[in-house]
């Protein structure tokens, strides 16, 4: 008993000593208020962007960029400009997005961030100027070749290849696109799941374009499951659209229209009006072609199922 008490006293003594030693640890360097303010705003911008509030995100990233410019933190300013540019791109402000991405690129000059700026510029120019995009793509591919981007920055190289492949697909060179994306998929381990999903979806689209609907449908089914796992409503809607197109290609008109309507509704609820209206036009065309009564189809829409998809 006595030993236990002594041990307890000793333990208390040691802990008290350690506690007071701990208290005397020197204080960390205080963060200057303007830096702290910029960091807080940056955290807010990230949260807003993750929530998909692109309007607020564009404004907040603009403010962050301005604050970092005043603090002469060029690297962080470039990141803020890039993200502002991406937000503007999502808002449909392509010219503004292009200017911001160019400014970010002019700050970075080189390195992975510069590559990201360039890939974003490719995406923006896809909406604005195909010529510029073509030219930029050629330059970037050449530069990637010479700088051995595939080995040094594999993830960025995969992204670049994805852009290249999707561009080819858009131009109608499905076989070339298929080859490019196949090659990029060899390095899929270097990228995250979302990028891998994008590559696979583009590959599925090339399969569609090449008329291999069975293979494409299998891919889209798989992609839909993955999208549900990723809990990304945009990817779910994209996968549904792909499924619908493939089903139409396979002659399963009724199922195709049902699924396409679900996809269109999902895009609508996500606020992606352009994608939604494109799908509705497609549905209209299919309906005209198959002479399926429009009203009857609309009446059979399983809205609950559609809701649950977005909810996921």
């Amino acid at each position: 008993m006595k030993n236990i008490r002594e041990s307890l006293y000793l333990a208390c003594f040691i802990f008290s000593g350690l506690f007071f030693i701990g208290c005397s640890t020197p204080a960390p360097e205080p963060v200057p208020y303007p830096v702290h303010e910029a960091e807080l705003l940056e955290a807010t911008a990230i949260n807003v962007m993750e929530a998909g509030n692109w309007k607020a995100s564009e404004e907040t990233w603009g403010e962050v960029a301005r604050k970092y410019a005043l603090l002469d933190r060029r690297d962080r300013q470039a990141i803020a400009l890039h993200n502002q540019s991406y937000s503007a791109y999502r808002n449909g402000n392509y010219e503004s997005a292009r200017a911001l991405a160019s400014e970010a690129a002019s700050i970075n000059l080189q390195g992975s961030e510069w590559w990201k700026n360039q890939i974003l510029l490719l995406q923006i120019e896809q909406k604005t100027s195909q010529e510029s995009r073509q030219k930029r793509m050629e330059e970037l591919l050449s530069l990637a070749e010479t700088s051995n981007l595939e080995e040094k920055e594999t993830a960025l190289w995969v992204l670049l290849q994805n852009e290249y492949g999707s561009g080819l697909l858009r131009e109608g060179s499905a076989d070339k696109a298929n080859a490019v994306i196949h090659r990029a998929l060899e390095k899929v381990n270097a990228v995250d799941r979302s990028t891998a999903w994008a590559l696979n979806s583009n590959l599925a689209e090339t399969e569609e374009a090449l008329g291999r609907y069975d293979a494409a449908l299998t891919s889209w089914n798989k992609l839909l499951e993955e999208a549900k796992e990723l809990a990304d409503p945009e990817l779910i809607a994209t996968a549904l659209a792909g499924q619908g197109r493939c089903l139409w290609g396979l002659g399963r008109d009724y199922e195709a229209i049902m699924i396409l309507q679900r996809a269109a509704k999902n895009f609508q609820w996500l606020g992606m009006e352009k994608e939604s209206s494109e799908l509705f036009e497609l549905i209209e065309q299919y309906m005209i072609k198959s002479a399926v009564p429009r009203e009857s189809n609309v009446m059979h829409i399983d809205t609950k199922t559609a809701d649950s998809e977005v909810g996921q």
């Binding site: 990141i79 970010a104 990201k116 974003l120 994805n162 852009e163 994008a198």
Partner: peptide
């Protein structure tokens, strides 16, 4: 953790 530049790959040639 420093913030990252956000970049999402283009989805499909239809869009």
């Amino acid at each position: 953790a420093p913030p990252q530049s956000v970049l999402r790959p283009t989805l499909g040639g239809k869009r």
